[in-house]
Design a protein around this nucleic acid. Sequence first.
DNA 1: AAACCTTACGACCGATCGTGCTAATTTGTC
DNA 2: GACAAATTAGCACGATCGGTCGTAAGGTTT
Lengths: 201, 201
Amino acid sequence: MTTTTDGRRLRGERSRRAILEAAATLSSVEGLEGLSLGRLAEHLGMSKSGLYAHFDSKEDLQLAVVETAVAMYGRDVMAKAAEHEPGIPQIVAFADTFLEYIATGPFPGGCFFIASFLDPANLRRPVKDALARAQKTLLDFFATNVDVARRKGDLPEDIDPSEMAYEIDAILVGADVNFVLFEDPVRLERARASVRRLLGG
Amino acid sequence: MTTTTDGRRLRGERSRRAILEAAATLSSVEGLEGLSLGRLAEHLGMSKSGLYAHFDSKEDLQLAVVETAVAMYGRDVMAKAAEHEPGIPQIVAFADTFLEYIATGPFPGGCFFIASFLDPANLRRPVKDALARAQKTLLDFFATNVDVARRKGDLPEDIDPSEMAYEIDAILVGADVNFVLFEDPVRLERARASVRRLLGG
DNA sequence: AAACCTTACGACCGATCGTGCTAATTTGTC
DNA sequence: GACAAATTAGCACGATCGGTCGTAAGGTTT
């Protein structure tokens, strides 16, 4: 992270960040590919070419948006989970925070990542790879914590951490999809219960 | 279903069906909103206006595509499940058939519905409603069979059918998303195991 | 203050978008 | 064989797409 005192670059940083957060927000609704430069610029109250000065291409913008979303989730969700002790508490905290984030966070269209995983932007290799990396990080986070819990004796000896990580993820993905589709918060409550049931015994 | 012997209409029916099946297939990759009339026409080897004569608007086409996908899943997946006895066998058969369908069926981009649930086409009310109806039908199918299994004594008395239906759905949704993202069939195997674990014991 | 760098703008490009309108062609009815 | 019905193609529209340009405004360096 190179810190600059150059006012021009600082201003650029700031507006670049504003562009990217708005783009991430809009993407959860209009899709990563469906978001157009024109509408994004209009939404920001700036010219299309002014916006475009920050990025080489649409794909470049998309990659930056994914990166931004990773940072947002890290700051808003992952950090909250990290406050709890490793193992089951950390997983449960993540799930609860995540589910609340879906409903009230900066992504009106539901989880940015889940929406993006199935977006046509995945036809672009670099975009798909960036998204896959993010998802792999999450699955590893779950698996590691499951393993910790297992060693602690909070989970049976014979479970497969990566298999259980996949099931935890599935509950959250299912919750997001159904919540977005039915616009019914009860789906999120159910997911909370399911996670606890899966980990609780 | 009005059967006609009019050759003109028959020809129309046939090409309309061809258009819709191709559109459903392409939609699973390019998205329901991202699919353009031009590319669809080109893929079919016909003119854009010739294709457009079958539909009043893009939204009208999208609605017909959803309807077509419902029919395809009914014919290819639901029918297979219906051959098994109600209860756990029917659920397991559905899951297995569905997971195989994802990998080898006519939808190269994974499950048409799951992709569509998060597609920007959902900004159109009628499209979203049609998709929600389809998903509700599936959840009811699961819940009904869970209830049958419960009455049979194959599942504990105290489970909530609609809650368990949601968990079965989540496993399948999670499998689809991860399979599409990682292009790894192992995800589908895991889902088969998860469904059995959830229903088994 | 001159030279330079960065941000942002307006104008514009070719391509494609969804969508009409008309004509031509095929098929069926009388 | 005349007429109607239905499918398909040709053509063109206004809008918007992603993207390129030249340029002015303002901050930085010397």
